[in-house]
Design a protein around this nucleic acid. Structure first.
Lengths: 235, 235
DNA sequence: CGGGCGGTTGAGTCTCTTCAACAAATGTGG
DNA sequence: CCACATTTGTTGAAGAGACTCAACCGCCCG
């Protein structure tokens, strides 16, 4: 915890266009971060803590500073579907008609900038450049959700898990990408990949037995053979 | 074809907040539509025509005026995954780093407003209210993609198809919602729901045999028993 | 030290996919 | 206007894979 993101909110997103305003495209300027910091409050969440529930009235939008957060929806019969996993620099708090569209929960201990929605809307109306950055981030969320849907479309369990590991490797680079941390339970992986938690376990074992990865305890894997992992992800 | 959307582009989206600027939240103002019309061009696409391919350089963004468009990505081994079905009032042309993230294809004969991206970006920078509307629409796309992921998470084939029908009923209201048009081939439904096209056909037959729907030819269904359909969608 | 939680592994059932044949609809050329 | 070819949609039978139920193991915490 307590990384450099403490000073002011930061947003991280792949650019949409090549060089939209001639700017770098993604990160906020110092002034923008300062403007956000004036209306935002840094909030701490414990492991497993619920941040808001689906259907709650929209009050704040969040940008994650540290830790991992999951947003989820309940599958009319109590089955939890995780719609997104969020990492530092990501935003959450998507709403529809003034109510949160998902529930949000801290997967690990986490810190997030809590931004009052009304004040944010006013700020965006006054600063089109800042608003552009949020638009780019929203479109980043579209791509992310579509990638997730593609993962769910994979029929093989091993393919989904392999793809999930590659996804995590992009999002959480550690040790030059060889070590992939799994800072969540098997149940969370299951609810994100649409598999039963037994299938998650079996698929990880299968990738281990195939020599693609090595388990570094239950919450980290070392990628031994990236080519084989990619091959397993394709099918 | 040739509906009222001809005069100028229109955008349709559920609002994000309750009443963001005190405005209606979603539709464009007459001035905004006019401003867009000045830089946009209304383009016609034939049934099945490719609009752009995944990876093509980003040149235009589109808002659909009439017809149905699908965006899709190829599943490294030639398997097509449809990421979204688009209806009049929807936008497409999502890009990453200056290249289209999906391919786009006209599912039916279609008309779309073709907006040069650079000019749109300039316009948005000058008009924060318009930019807000695009932000709201982008967040609408996030929700839509998440709903799609939830559909793919349903394990039963019948559940997915029932949910797909309810989805179409919301998007394409016809005859007061009793008749649901299916203006696409079984193959498109299969690629959107992640099923084989045989399973699509079987699931529709199962819903028919269960008395939930009645087939009105291959490209329309009448919902006989909405409660039973919803029940089938849940499981 | 004991209990509970999270994770792994095993056996049987169910269902979706695949392969295949068939029927219906569409469109073309004579 | 009809015959035919091609595409699109439906239905059937067999196989593969994930889910469920269940037992077992390791670990953390009380």
């Amino acid at each position: 915890m307590s990384e450099k993101g403490d000073a002011a909110p930061e947003i991280r997103a792949r650019p949409f266009g090549n060089a939209p305003h001639g700017a770098a495209g993604v990160a906020l300027s110092a002034e923008q971060r300062h403007a956000l910091a004036r209306i935002a409050r840094l909030v701490h969440f414990a492991h497993g803590q619920t941040i808001y529930l689906q259907g709650d009235p929209l009050t704040h939008v969040y940008t994650l500073a540290a830790g991992v957060v999951a947003t989820y929806r309940m599958n009319d019969e109590g089955v939890r579907h995780i719609t997104a996993l969020l990492f530092p620099g990501d935003c959450f708090g998507v709403a529809e008609a003034g109510r949160y569209f998902n529930a949000a929960e801290a997967v690990t201990e986490a810190e997030a900038w809590q931004i009052p929605f009304r004040e944010l809307a006013a700020l965006l109306e006054a600063d089109p450049r800042l608003e552009w950055n949020f638009l780019v981030k929203a479109l980043d969320g579209v791509r992310q959700a579509q990638r997730h849907a593609i993962l769910l479309d994979r029929h093989g369990a091993v393919q989904r898990i392999a793809l999930f590991l590659e996804y995590l490797r992009r999002e959480m680079p550690a040790n030059g990408g060889r070590i992939v941390p799994l800072p969540m339970s098997r149940s969370v992986i299951a609810d994100y990949t649409g598999l039963s938690l037994e299938s998650v376990s079996r698929s990880l074992s299968a990738l281990r037995d195939a020599g693609a990865i090595r388990m570094e305890g239950p919450h980290a894997v070392e990628v031994l053979d990236p080519a084989r992992l990619r091959e397993a992800a394709e099918g």
